Computed example of a mutant assay.
Amino acid sequence: MTEDELLLREAEKIAHAVGRMFPGLCEVVLHDLRDPDHAVRAIEGALSGRAVGDPATELGLARIADAGFPDVLQNYPNRFPDGRQAKSTSIGIRNSGGEYVAALCLNLDVSLLGAAAHALTRLAGTDGPAPLAESLHARTGDELRALVEDYAADRGHTPRSLAAAAKKDVVRLAKERGFLELKNAVPALTDLLGISRATVYNYLR
């Protein structure tokens, strides 16, 4: 067996294995560039309608004509005969003399993926923002304490040294953010702010 035949035999294994991994989605074609009129040596997942023995494409002919043609053309746009969009990659295979012997080409049908991407974009889409910020996790007593302490620290105070108006504001802020749904939230506020329960309820009116 010649070196060229060995290369083609091994590449044929790859063509079938890769094509069978993506049935109905990816066409894998092995071209024998030594015989451009009957270049298709193997094809798996024939999405283009081609068959073994069909001629080389323009890309294959360009490789045959120019030894300096790029070894790999990656992810270039293409189109199947029926109009479906494709993404293609073409890999040239050289022998030890540097001559192109074969090309392994992958043609991915992206028409289905495009439709799926459009559907996912619509599914992930949202309308306008809610009128207030919403957190989807359960509030905790530690978070309530942090809210009050941060509010006071931002104003250069401890929670208990805040003015009455500021204490009223932070109580209402705690309510807006859902902390008043916590068990023992009111006792926690009375302890943090140094006010009575009656005062907390008065602030909430």
Score class of each variant (00 low, 15 high):
Leu123Ser: 15
Ser111Gln: 11
Pro70Gln: 05
Ser111Glu: 07
Ser90Glu: 06
Asp71Leu: 14
Cys105Gly: 03
Asp82Lys: 07
Ala51His: 15
Val72Gly: 09
His118Pro: 01
Gly128Asn: 12
Val101Cys: 00
Gly92Gln: 01
Gln74Thr: 12
Lys87Asn: 13
Ala56Leu: 08
Leu112His: 01
Leu73Val: 14
Gly83Asp: 00
Ala103Gln: 13
Phe69Arg: 04
Glu99Lys: 14
Ala86Ser: 13
Glu58Cys: 07
Ala86Pro: 02
Ala65Gly: 09
Glu99Cys: 14
Gly53Glu: 11
Val101Gln: 00
Tyr76Pro: 06
Pro77Ser: 13
Lys87Arg: 15
Thr121Cys: 12
Pro55Ala: 08
Tyr76Asp: 05
Cys105His: 05
His118Thr: 13
Thr89Ile: 09
Ala86Ile: 00
Arg84Gln: 01
Arg63Ser: 00
Pro77Tyr: 06
Thr57Tyr: 08
Ala116Tyr: 02
Leu120Val: 10
His118Tyr: 09
Ser111Tyr: 00
Ala102Asp: 00
Ala103Pro: 09
Ser111Gly: 08
Arg63Val: 05
Phe80Cys: 05
Ala67Leu: 13
Asn95Val: 10
Asn107Thr: 02
Tyr76Gln: 05
Ala62Tyr: 02
Leu61Tyr: 04
Asn107Asp: 06
Phe69Thr: 01
Ala102Pro: 06
Arg122Trp: 10
Glu58Thr: 14
Ala51Thr: 15
Leu61Asn: 08
Lys87Cys: 09
Gly60Ile: 06
Asn78Arg: 07
Phe69Cys: 10
Tyr76Gly: 06
Asp127Leu: 15
Leu112Ser: 01
Phe80Ala: 00
Ala86Phe: 04
Ala86Arg: 03
His118Cys: 09
Leu73Ser: 12
Gly53Gln: 13
Ala119Thr: 03
Ala56Ser: 14
Gln85Thr: 07
Phe80Asn: 04
Leu61Glu: 05
Cys105Asp: 03
Thr121Met: 13
Asn75Trp: 07
Glu99Phe: 09
Ala124Leu: 15
